[in-house]
Every structure is written in C-alpha cells, then in structure tokens.
Design a protein around this nucleic acid. Structure first.
Lengths: 391, 391
DNA sequence: CATGTTTGTTAGTAGATCTTACGAACTAAA
DNA sequence: TTTAGTTCGTAAGATCTACTAACAAACATG
C-alpha cells in the first residue's frame, strides 16, 4: 500500500479550481469515500456501501477488492439477521492490521507518546522527562521517545503524528517553540528521515481540536481552548482546521483582555489572557488564597472569585470571536479541577451577556471528554487523514 | 448554456470526501479551470492555457470548443509578436456576451441596483427610495427596482446577485432583517420565480468581502468591516467566505467592547460596538461637539478624540479575532471622512498593542478601494462564481 | 532554402464509472 | 414441496474522460 504521501481527494466546493483532475483522481476520491464510510459505520456489505455512497454495487465491489488487496479491508463472514435475498458479506476496515504512533510535546516538563489503534484507542503509552532540555537536546529527547514508542508497536505502523507547542507550519517545521528552544526546527523532515515512516507535525491545540471533532461527536464548527502552562486554541470551521496566514491561528494567550489593565505578563504587556488563566497562575493564586485564609469557607470563597474572574476573562476574549464566526460550540481542555464548574460557567455567562442572544442562544461550552490523551489522539487523526483520507 | 444551477467543481482537499465523483464531474472541473484561467489573465492561446493548467493541448482544445459553442469564449485573431512557429490564436472570455444584474439592499433609506460587465465593472446604476417600506412593501420595492435594472441590461443576463442586510442563509432566505421588516423572507426563491433568472442572495458584508477579495488584489485571509447604519463584518479564510453555523458570522455590531461599560445601545446592552462606531452615532457626536465648541480648533480636537476612541473600540473587538485567526489583512468599508485617517490609525494601533507583535507585526488595515459599489460588485462575484465557477 | 519551433487537430489508447444481465442464496407463501 | 419475490455480488459491454503519438500548417532563423 501507499505509506507515504497524502491521497489526493476530490470534492465539489464553492471555490475556483486550482488544479486539473484526471480519471485516476476520481478513483482515489471514491476509494477514500468507501473507506471513510466503512471507517465510520463499520460492518457493512458491499451493497450497503453502494447505497450509502451513491456508487453502484459494481464499482464498490471493484474498490473493495483493491482495498482488500492492500489489507486495509477484510471480510467478516455473512450477516446473520434473517432477511430475504442472498445474505450479505460483511466488511470492515482491518482495524488490527496497522497501528499509529503519536507524540505529545506540549507538556511543560514531560513528553508523552503512545501507540494507537486505527480507531484512535490508546493501546500503550510512554513518557520521557524533558529535564529542561532545549534546542538540539530537546530534539534528541523527542527522537529517543519516538524510537521507544515505535518499538512498542505490535503491527505495521501507518504513520507518526506529533502535536508540538508553538508555531508549526504546513511542512511540519516548528517555526517557534520557546519552551523547547526551537526556531525553524524541521521536525517532520528530520524524524521522517530518521524513522523512514511518514510523519506529520502540527500544533498541539490544532491536534486537540481534530481529536474533539473526530471522536467528540457533533459535526459543528468548533473552538477548543487548551489551558496549560500557556493558553492556546484550535479552530475548526466547515470541517477543516484553521491554521492562519502565518500558521499562528489560535494563539490567543497574549491577547489583552478588557480595558482595565490586569496582571503583568511575561511578554511585557499587562492583562494578557495567559496572565489571567494559565494553570501556573491559577494554582499559585489559589495557593496564596488558601494560605491567607483563616477558615476553609473563606478560602473557598476566594478561590471561587479567582475562578470566576478567570472564566469571565476568557469569555471577554471569546465573545468577539464567537460573534465574528457565529460559533456554537466551545470546548475546554485542561485540568478539570480548575476549568470545570465555576470557571466555565462564568465563561459561558460572560459570552452570552456580551453577544447577541438571538445568535448565540444555543451556545454550548463544555469540557472535552478526551482527557489528557487529547493531543495524542488528535495526532492520530492527522495520520489517518494524511495516509488514508479517513477520519 | 447552463443558466441555472451552480457548476459542480472538484478539488483536492484535506477533508474526508462526502460525495462520489463521476467522469462528467472531472470534465466540469477542468472546464471551469480553463475558464478561470482565461478570466484571470485573458488573451491566451490554447497552448498557453495547456501550459498553465497542466492539461494537454488536445484537452484544452476540446474544452474551448465547448465553451465557444456556449458563446462564453471567443477567438480574437492571431498573436502579432514575431515568434518562431505557427502563430497562436488568441482567446478570451466573451466579456460582452453577458451582463450581471445586482442589488444592494443595505442602504438605510435607499436601495441601489446596477448592471455590471463580466469583469465586475458597473455599466449603469439605478436606485429607489425605500420610503420606510417594511415587510411585503419592502419586497415590492425590491422587485420593482430589480425589474428596472433588468430592463436596462443590454445583453443576456448571466444572473442576479443581491446583497441584503441581516441574516441570510445558504438558500437565500433572509432569516432576519429588522431594517426591512423581514423574517424568513425567501427572497432568492421569490425573485427567481418572478424573473426566471438565476438569483443569489447573500449578506451585504459577505458580498463586500468577496468583492474585496476578487477585485482588491491579494489572496490573503481577509476581514472586512462594514460601517454604516450598523456595523457588520465579512470574513474570508482560505479563499472561502465564512457564513457561520447559523449564518450569522460577522455580526459583531452587538458585541460588547471592553470592561468599562459604554453608551447604551438600542439592543439593550451597554457598550456594544455599534453604540461606539455606527455612522449615525459618530455623526451626531461630531455634530454635538461642533455645536458645543467655541473655536474650530477646539471642535477639531474633540472630533479627533471621538474618532480615536471609536477606532480604539473597534481595535479592542478585533484583537481577539485577529489573534485567533492570525489575520493579516483588515479592510474597512464606509464613509471615508469618518473611517480613514484618525479612526483607522487608532484601530491598527490598538490591535497591535493588544496582540503578539511577532505574529501580527505585518498586519495591514486599509480602506477598501471599491467605494460605494462594493456590495454591488460583490454580488456580481457571487453570480460569476455560481454560474461560471469563475471569480 | 533548409531547419527547427510552435500551434492546433486527428486517431487511437487507457482508465473510470455506468447500465444491463445473470447466477447464487435466502424468505415467504401457495 | 414448489413457486415467487428479494437481495447480493459479479460479468460483459457502453460511455465518458483525458492521455499519447503523429501530423500538417505557419512562422523565424541561419
């Protein structure tokens, strides 16, 4: 099978065409369409696929035999339900034939890695302490972790997906990642050379929003806010991730909130979102409050105020974005003990009170259900999308 | 030729495919590709087109003869430059064979209409006073104006494009337009029935951003802010307009600015962008200042303060959007005597001071060069895109 | 004047889907 | 038990697309 190079899909769109299309491209489109349908619903017959895709049974049969030849699809016996007619042969993606390896470099002190099934389930995970490594030393840590994780795979590896903090361009070059001490680090190309596997590197928040989109259910436009040592966002509109003109979309951590100043930020400005909302800032503020309080009730009250204010600040930043994009779904990723409850309630209330209620009335804001594996799973989505055209 | 129904184009994209593709679709894609190339550069030979599109001369010839049969393309004699080889036959879109009719319903008191060439040049324009007509009466005014404009066309009409204020869905139903007294007004369908022509209705700010994109040059992501009786925005990312989950993208007029309250808005909230920035509010504030001032210099000073503050408020709203989308190009549309200069300088300065300089350093903010015809021209882009796949 | 280049067309090939037709295998009713 | 009807998967041939190869026409250059 093709293990390198993204499939070239074909689609109608309200855009001027930019490239010619050949008969072989339509084959790839329909092949991917069948694979996608099978990936999503699983356990279908050729006839089912024909009905769902609009292709004829003949064409589906042909595509399926091609996919079976690549070990991507397998037959799973005949359907048992008593129905008139010849019983259908059930098909499914061969979900155990390949595995996906992904890394999450967004941890402040620890890098994580995992082997995932084609369904995005974490089969095994590993980690390595960054130990303040920067620049080339940080790269070595990444390469070491990657080799470890690859060794733990128990099936051929479909590809490697990596979520990195900082600005990452379309070629997988990390343009700027202060925490890792990288500037213009060609991570994707280097690791692809080192491993011989197809590698995809994207920003961690962008990976996260892909995970939320693919595994989180609804097919809405989506804004994911990732709160950790810093604050970043991933944005998905019309089914596609937004990367931005300079690949810095979602970098809202150093946008100033409100018109009443605020705490000094490491970047030099006052009142940046990160200065209100980052995990270090919240935990230390809570610690201070706990230390200063004389009773547990008093501490709780102050903590509530801190979280409410942080949530409100997030809402102030998000309101114009929600209004401009007419977003209806916002997802938070980060420590639930900080974000869930008081903080997110304050955020949604602030957004609603600052935008047109008629347009944002059914806004939902919730915690992600992907937990700490969100970047690892999102990186897997990248690989599935790049290698199989599936997600 | 096909005068109704959008062409179905085909394109590679990083998205899962949602529909099957047939050989006839690839024909349409390549046909549109050729037409698009010709539309953009004009005066090319079949061999030139083949080189530019990547198709073979044979295929281009075939497509061209089809397009010539529909009177969309014409031959313009042989190239004169002395070059070796058989002289090339120059081709061009038949730019005088069709005309486009568009309406701009966004004026507070007056509706405008125009006949445009395929190049988007206004050939003749008309207008009609709204005279406070609302609901069905407003529809009648629109239909009357449309009939007038259609009568002034001097060539077959490719289609009708309409920019309407308010929330407009993909089917051209005006979901909500307070100024015209419309709720769920199926404008596109009604006018299509009435005229027998293909009609496209979109939000006025969305039309404007399309005009700016097609005629304004650069191929960047683009945010257009349209300041008039209200304040709205149109957003274009990756070459496509963003409509939003409920078709209300760009509705930033009633987003609250800052954390220090502000003037009461008609919507009930305090400190909405429209309460700071709309044309009526600015003109009346300036009028008051002029009346109250004892000297011209004093008046000028106060006016400067008013405009600076309005610009600053706009910047405060836009900063999170610019950060989240990593936008580099913002365009203002509206009365230049209000927006150009002091106000826009304050806006750009505010945005830069509230975002990460490294990511937004090369942000440009400028007035549109499309002037008052921006919606009319944008509506023409809609028609070109829908009928020919060209823009 | 011969040579090389470029243009646009004709003829035939390869790849993709489709329609039509058919055997296989099952359920349900006579 | 037989018959009819249904559904599945496959086979053969038709249609549509763009491609390659080849060629005549028309020009510039040495």
């Amino acid at each position: 099978m093709t293990t390198t190079g993204a499939p070239r899909m074909i689609q109608d769109r309200a855009l001027r065409p930019t490239a010619k299309v050949l008969p072989e491209h339509i084959r790839l489109n329909n092949r991917t369409l069948v694979l996608q349908t099978l990936y999503r619903t699983g356990l279908q017959s050729r006839a089912d696929l024909a009905r769902e895709t609009g292709l004829t049974r003949v064409t589906v049969s042909d595509l399926i035999s091609e996919l079976m030849g690549e070990n991507l699809v397998i037959e799973l016996g005949q359907r048992q339900e008593p129905r008139p007619g010849k019983p259908a042969t059930l098909l499914d993606i061969n979900r155990v034939a390949f595995q996906i390896v992904t890394l999450d470099l967004s941890g402040h002190t620890r890098l994580r890695g995992a082997v995932l099934s084609l369904d995005g389930v974490v089969l095994s995970s590993s980690g390595i302490d960054l130990a303040d490594a920067r620049g080339e030393a940080a790269y070595d840590k990444v390469a070491e972790l990657l080799a470890q994780v690859i060794a733990r795979a128990t099936a051929p590896i479909l590809g490697v997906g990596i979520g990195s903090p900082g600005i990452v361009d379309r070629a997988g070059v990390v343009r700027n990642a202060p925490n890792l001490g990288w500037r213009d680090q060609p991570l994707q190309a280097r690791l692809q050379n080192a491993t011989g596997l197809p590698v995809r590197v994207v920003n961690d928040a962008n990976a996260a929003v892909l995970a939320e989109h693919s595994f989180g259910g609804a097919d809405h436009d989506l804004l994911l806010v990732k709160v950790g040592h810093g604050v970043g966002a991933g944005l998905l509109i019309g089914g596609r991730a937004i990367f931005g003109e300079r690949f810095a979309a979602g970098e809202i951590g150093h946008v100033v909130v409100g018109t009443d100043d605020g705490p000094l930020c490491a970047c030099g400005k006052s009142g940046c979102l990160e200065a209100w909302l980052s995990v270090p800032r919240l935990t230390s503020a809570i610690q201070d409050a706990t230390d200063a309080a004389t009773t547990a009730a008093e501490a709780e009250l102050v903590i509530d105020q801190i979280l409410t204010e942080a949530g409100r600040r997030l809402g102030i930043i998000l309101a114009p974005v929600v209004g401009a994009l007419n977003l209806l779904e916002i997802v938070l990723s980060g420590p639930p003990e900080l974000l869930d409850g008081t903080l997110s309630a304050a955020t949604v209330e602030t957004i609603l009170s600052r935008t047109m209620a008629t347009e944002t009335g059914d806004l939902t804001l919730r915690m992600t259900e992907q937990g700490e594996d969100i970047v690892l799973r999102g990186a897997a989505v990248m690989v599935l999308s790049a290698q199989l055209g599936v997600s």
